[in-house]
């Protein structure tokens, strides 16, 4: 669990480091600050369980078992990337790991997870679907349409709303008539909880119950996970200098860093000694270095590939 959180954090930090070189030409929406959510949820999933995700999807993809080398190659527009350079940072897919595809249309991914869950029921298998989306998706009709249908048909879906209180620069209070997102889901007659999205153990346990419930045919569950993004909406910089958000607000949330909190817990409880943590960090650094080298050394697609894969 600690390894996975570290992997996500360090992967995104590497993107921050590489991005200013201007050769990774794809808009990046970084997951830093949200790590406990993808980690806590996906560690409960089987390889063939489905996940739909959004523009801020790197963490979900890593947590679902995707290969960081192929992800980075995709960000660099390389032929060896997950989508042969046609998707970029916002569009990752991996059918082998159940990743249905990340949609950069706000709210676009929810129905896909519901549809995959419908297929699971029709096919009589036990696969569960998880939809990851932001508080922005709650504004969209597809959110309500998806919750209603999933509950109506008692489908094996877990809705995971990563509420970081902002959609670009727009605060939740400027957009939602009811700021209690979890409460909206109750209106669709499904169990719904609001948890601290920076506490990986809580997320893990809540998700475990929700996923077990889905797998045993009892229908969908809704999880609102409150968290905060550390970087700008898009790109490697921080946006507080631009006045997008109050600095004190960011500072408060950085103090509640999900990775740091989990590390402290592990140390306090003597679960993992510091030396092993350092070893894990070294291992992750190595993986990421290897991914960077793979991505940078990979060939670009040839122009004629543009015309492939339309149909």
């Amino acid at each position: 669990m600690y390894l996975l959180m570290l992997r996500i954090r360090k992967f995104e930090e590497k993107v921050v480091e590489l991005y200013p070189a201007q050769d990774m030409r794809s808009p990046v929406h970084l997951y830093i600050g949200h790590e406990a959510i993808a980690t806590g949820v996906c560690l409960n999933l089987r390889k063939d369980d489905y996940v739909s995700s959004n523009h801020r999807g790197h963490g979900h993809c890593i947590a679902k078992g995707m290969d960081m080398r192929l992800m980075l190659a995709e960000f660099y527009g390389k032929k060896t990337g997950y989508c042969k350079g046609k998707g970029g940072s916002m569009h990752l897919v991996d059918p082998e790991n159940g990743v249905l595809g990340t949609s950069a249309i706000v709210g676009g991914g929810l129905p896909l997870a519901v549809g995959a869950a419908l297929a699971s029921v029709m096919q009589g298998n036990e696969r569960v679907s998880v939809a990851f989306f932001g508080d922005g998706a709650v504004d969209e009709g597809s959110f309500h349409e998806s919750l209603n249908f999933a509950s109506l048909k008692k489908l094996p879906v877990v809705f995971v709303c990563e509420n970081n209180f902002y959609a670009t620069n727009s605060h939740q209070s400027a957009r939602h008539s009811n700021n209690d997102i979890a409460c909206l889901a109750e209106g669709y007659m499904m169990p719904s909880v609001c948890v601290d999205g920076n506490d990986v153990i809580t997320v893990f346990e809540t998700a475990r119950n929700a996923i077990n419930r889905a797998r045993s045919g009892k229908g969908p569950t809704f999880m609102e996970c409150r968290t905060y993004r550390w970087k700008a909406h898009v790109g490697p910089d921080c946006d507080v200098e631009k006045g997008c958000r109050p600095r004190e607000e960011l500072d408060q949330w950085v103090k509640r860093c999900p990775v740091k909190r989990f590390r402290e817990l592990l140390l306090d409880e003597n679960v993992l000694p510091e030396s092993e943590m350092l070893e894990l960090a070294r291992q992750v650094d190595e993986e990421i270095e290897e991914a960077v080298i793979f991505a940078k050394n990979s060939p670009l697609p040839s122009p004629t590939e543009l015309y492939e894969d339309v149909y």
Binding site: G108, L118, G141, E145, F149
Partner: peptide, 18 residues
């Protein structure tokens, strides 16, 4: 339900799942 966009997305999800 009378929810054309959501239902279309649900059909796409089902198609992706075989």
């Amino acid at each position: 339900p009378i929810a054309e966009n959501g239902i279309t997305g649900i059909m796409i999800g089902a198609a992706l799942a075989g």
